[in-house]
Amino acid sequence: MAGSAMTTSSGKILLEVVTPDHRLLSKEVDYVSAPGSEGDFGVLPGHCHFLTTLRIGELQYRIGEQTEYMAVLWGFAEVTPTKVTILAEIAEKAEDINVERAEDAVRKAEERLERGGLPSEVEEARVSLEKARLRQKIAGRHRQQAGSRLL
């Protein structure tokens, strides 16, 4: 099925990532994987039409041998055979993530979780912990990658 639909130029997909305050990315890529609200999904050229909400998670895309990572927090994704549009509430490229701030946020959120409190407060702390952990993870991948490139 995928083969017959692969009529696009060079079999690439256009990946667009936009947030309410700017356009983060617009690139031809070979493969995208994104965090759908009902599970992660991967997209190769010629994917069928697909529309989903996103949760907090990791967006990966590959150009040739090079894989890049990005944090996305909520939003929507629309997939067509030639294009993936990510409409995220917040999105950050791995290299733009402030690691110290994320570590700080993890610590604060953990403290708040231990302290407990109203259900809404606990929920809020849980979400910010999840956000901060994600940022850490993605920044970590970026560092690892930069390290392996040096070797």
Binding site: G36, S37, E38, C48, H49, F50, L51, T52, T53
Partner: peptide, 20 residues
């Protein structure tokens, strides 16, 4: 326009519309 059948929604269509 693609016919309704060949389009996937997650979560289901109504829930998606209600947020979108």
């Amino acid at each position: 326009p693609v016919e309704a059948g060949s389009y996937l929604y997650e979560p289901d269509e109504n829930e998606l519309l209600a947020t979108l």
